[in-house]
Design a protein around this nucleic acid. Structure first.
Length: 311
RNA sequence: GCCUUGGUAGCUCAGUCGGUAGAGCAGUAGACUGAAAAUCUACGUGUCGGUGGUUCAAUUCCGCCCCAAGGCA
């Protein structure tokens, strides 16, 4: 049996310095970066997603950026397939694959074999349940799920209509109950992955977020969003649900002040960072890196040394 | 100086016909299997501006004071 491919992952909340740490790592290891971010996937969304700069991309090869247009909808399953291929390519080149990003579900789907609904997706079915939801309410849809897949209904809150509908969709399209998807065991890991998480004191992290939002505005976030809308991207598009995008749309329409918009983006980004922390705190084997305890360069050197030692 | 309206949770405010009060947001914790920067769940004691008075009992009624906004001089 060939042993599993070794992969490094740098995860953590937004504005936690993941990309910077990865770039610092490049001074010690021959790395290539695989971005693990559900919004950096989209072309033309650079400022709001804090996408790595062209300079960084020249210095170190980056993968999984700009893989689809903002008009399209992207999914975890597509991500896993493409990211697997990117990792394989990096290994062939004799380089070290480094996953960098804050999308917890992408990480998990890459780490473990997950059924992800067994290849099922049907917009028509989805729309039908959506209609039922609007007509009969959340309780009715949940009751239907309870009838067809009691196990799934038990674990999903009736108000979480999005996932209740998804459960119904999977059942209908695949014939397999949503609840039959199980959490894989730890030994089923698909890679030999070292997962590092950037850690900051909460107040510091929140300050970093506030600062970053202000910088994004100064860097032209509003113009970026306007350009996307002008190019025909629907405000309802999946890409426009990204933080900083959905909030700027009302501002462009004159429905909010700049000040309120900045505050709203900052607040929601802080909320998001908290959700990411909840996710990563549960991530098996994750090693938190206290970013305040020593300079980033030191951390990069240590991580590289450890990488060699474990070889 | 006078009049009016306010002063209640970190913020915006509701409320108590007198029995020490509750929403939204923030915050904290959590969930998460082809939308995940999405979606969802749980958690609300604070001298009810201060001080006297009436009362068995005052955040609530009355007096005075302080602060804020507006108006009149």
């Amino acid at each position: 049996m060939p042993h599993k491919t070794r992969v490094l992952a740098v995860v953590g909340p937004t504005a936690g310095g993941k990309s910077d740490l990865a770039m610092a790592l490049a001074q010690y290891l021959p790395i290539e970066i695989v971005c693990m971010d559900s919004m950096q996937i989209y072309q033309g969304m650079d400022i709001g997603t804090a996408k790595p700069t062209p300079e960084d991309r020249t210095r170190v090869a980056h993968h999984m950026l700009d893989v689809c247009t903002p008009h399209q909808a992207y999914s975890v399953a597509e991500y896993v397939e493409a990211a697997d291929a990117a990792i394989a390519g990096i290994v062939v080149r004799g380089h070290v694959p480094v996953l960098v990003g804050g999308t917890g579900l992408y990480l998990r789907a890459l780490r473990y074999p997950m059924t992800l609904g067994g290849g099922a997706r049907d917009d028509a079915v989805r729309a039908r349940y959506q209609q039922m939801l609007e007509k009969e309410g959340a309780q009715a849809v949940h009751a239907l799920l309870h009838q067809r897949d009691p196990e799934a209904a038990r674990t999903l809150h009736p108000n979480n209509t999005r996932r209740v509908i998804r459960a119904l969709e999977v059942l209908e399209v695949t014939g397999q109950p949503f609840s039959s998807q199980r959490m894989p065991e730890e030994h089923e890991e698909r890679y030999a992955m070292t997962v590092l998480g950037t850690q900051w004191p909460r107040p510091t992290l929140y300050e970093r977020i506030n600062l970053r939002v202000e910088r994004m505005m100064q860097a032209g976030l509003v113009e970026e969003v306007r350009a996307l809308l002008d190019s025909g991207v629907s405000p309802d598009a999946q890409s426009m649900q990204g933080l900083g995008y959905k909030e700027v749309i009302p501002y462009l329409a004159g429905q909010a002040t700049r000040e309120d918009t900045v505050e709203l983006i900052s607040r929601r980004t802080r909320n998001y960072a908290k959700r990411q922390l909840t996710w990563f705190n549960r991530e098996p084997g994750l090693i938190w890196i206290d970013m305040k305890s020593q300079p980033q360069k030191e951390w990069a050197a240590r991580i590289a040394a450890r990488w060699h030692n474990e070889h």
